[in-house]
Computed example of a mutant assay.
Amino acid sequence: MASGVKVTDEVIAVFNDMKVRKAQANEDEKRKRKKAILFCMSKDLKNIVLDDGKEILLGDLGTTVQDPYQHFVKMLPPDDCRYALYDATYETKETKKEDLVFIFWAPESAPLKSKMIYASSKDAIKRKFEGIKHEWQVNGLEDLKDRHTLAEKLGGSSVVSLEGAPI
């Protein structure tokens, strides 16, 4: 069932910016690239929009953000749903990788109406996010707490480190 919710151009632009890595980007452009971002419903529930201020920039890493994964987990609202993109940097036994992970956050404590609207609108945002390899529905902090669950999603037992920290 589709909800009729639209994805704003701003959300699509952020996704495209995160998806396309510019090899010739200067240091300033790299610092402004997003490591993670949250999306929410607009007040009138008709559009999926950027969740104001809920992002991690690459330039924040090592300064205001020490552990990007833990910082990302803390950004999620404890009692409402969100969509998120997380640019995971990880190593397998063979190689280093970076992949975008689409996360549908629907905690048990979220209102039923919110869960229904977000669930029925998920396809709208997923259709706009072409080329996402990893999708993850998370229903509580216990699913997110440690890096093992994300490492499983990214490559199972072949993942040896996530965000520079060993698994």
Rank of each mutant, 00 (worst) to 15 (best):
D99H: 10
Y83S: 01
K153F: 08
K74F: 10
M75W: 11
K6M: 07
T63N: 09
T92W: 03
T8A: 11
K96R: 08
G53F: 10
N47Y: 07
K93D: 14
D79F: 01
F102I: 03
G155E: 13
R21A: 09
G59T: 13
P78T: 12
K34P: 01
S42H: 04
E55F: 05
E130N: 11
K133N: 15
T92L: 09
G155T: 14
T92K: 05
R127G: 00
L141Q: 14
T8S: 15
N47P: 00
I48E: 10
K6P: 01
N16L: 11
T149R: 13
S161G: 03
T149Y: 03
K35V: 06
F129E: 07
D87E: 15
V49D: 03
Y118Q: 00
Y86A: 07
L150N: 13
I48M: 04
I117T: 12
F72R: 02
L58G: 00
H134N: 14
N26G: 15
M41D: 06
E91F: 01
F129T: 04
T64Y: 03
K19C: 02
S42D: 11
T63I: 14
K128Q: 14
K19S: 09
P107N: 03
S157C: 10
T149A: 15
E152G: 10
E94I: 03
L50T: 11
S3C: 10
L100P: 09
L100A: 06
P77D: 12
L38K: 05
V7F: 09
D80E: 13
T95F: 02
L38A: 09
A23L: 07
K122T: 14
Y83H: 04
T92N: 07
K93N: 14
C81E: 08
H148S: 09
T64A: 12
A119W: 03
D79G: 03
K22M: 15
D79Y: 02
K122G: 05
A23Y: 11
K133S: 11
R147K: 09
Y118R: 01
K133Q: 14
S3V: 06
K43N: 02
L150A: 00
I37R: 08
L61F: 02
D60Q: 11
L58Q: 07
C81I: 04
M75Y: 05
P78C: 06
D143Q: 12
I132E: 11
A110N: 08
T95E: 12
T63M: 02
M75G: 01
E98I: 14
K96Y: 04
N47H: 08
G155V: 07
F72T: 02
L112Q: 11
Q66V: 00
D99M: 05
Q24H: 14
K126H: 05
K113E: 13
